[in-house]
Simulated assay, not measured.
Amino acid sequence: MKQTRQISDSVRLGLLLAISGGFMDAYSYLFRGKVFANAQTGNLLLLGLNIFEGHWDACIKYLVPIVCFMIGVFLATCIRRSFQSYKKFHWRQFTILIEAIVLFSVAFLPQSMNLLVNSLISLSCGIQIESFKKIHGLGASTTMCVGNLRSATSLLSDYIYTKDKEDLKKGLLYLLIIFFFVMGAVVGNVFIQSMGQYSILICSLLLLVAFLSMFYHPESY
């Protein structure tokens, strides 16, 4: 029973983070100048196109968030190494709390500072993707969908041939993560329409809930 409870909590946390990931991407793209905060592939592509066309001002728009994403990954790694043996808090709680604080500050920055905003969101995404690499024991991302979609398709394809129910369960879990990511983007769009730049506060609140939830079964994370 204990193992089941821990797995359930981990899945709930992962889905909550997936909603947050979709929300952040919708916010940065729809409200902050059409920059992808999560999927740096899009930013790399747009960076390359702008370099080719000689639009150097636009290059900065995409280059800085890419660098900040890398800084976020580096920061999460440093936190893990520094606080992995800390008893009162799990190191992942530190990373979620940092994310929540960063996104809270973003809500009060005007659109004239979109470069800084998108850089901070990319920093948060880098922290999240490095801190939470697994859900229910599966390698999964809560900030982008390509890898999850590939894994879901592969597992469901295996199930067709093997009839192994574990493959089916794993494949459906990946699809569930993708669904919650998309719903995060949908919810983000709704709140953007009504709250504008302050809508990102909802995302900060979601991360705060995730932070607090980890106090109940910290060993499962």
Rank of each mutant, 00 (worst) to 15 (best):
A100Q: 04
I101Y: 10
I101M: 14
F104V: 02
F104S: 14
S105A: 13
V106A: 09
V106L: 06
F108Q: 00
F108G: 04
S112I: 04
M113E: 13
M113I: 02
N114K: 00
N114H: 01
L115P: 01
L115A: 00
L116N: 07
V117R: 05
S119R: 05
L120A: 07
I121F: 01
I121M: 11
S122K: 03
L123A: 06
S124A: 15
G126A: 12
I127K: 12
I127R: 06
Q128W: 04
I129K: 04
E130P: 05
F132R: 08
F132T: 09
K134A: 12
H136Y: 14
H136Q: 10
G137H: 02
G137T: 03
L138A: 06
G139C: 02
G139T: 12
S141L: 03
S141D: 04
T142G: 13
C145F: 05
G147D: 12
G147V: 05
G147F: 10
L149I: 14
R150W: 02
S151Y: 11
A152S: 15
S154M: 11
S154T: 13
L156C: 05
D158Q: 12
D158C: 10
D158V: 00
Y159P: 01
Y159S: 01
Y159T: 02
Y159A: 00
K163P: 02
K165I: 15
E166S: 13
D167H: 12
L172V: 14
L172A: 10
L173Y: 10
L173F: 09
L173V: 09
L173Q: 04
Y174H: 11
Y174V: 03
Y174A: 03
Y174C: 02
L175H: 07
L176E: 13
F179T: 11
F180V: 09
F181I: 04
F181R: 01
V182G: 00
M183Y: 05
G184C: 09
G184K: 03
A185P: 08
V186W: 13
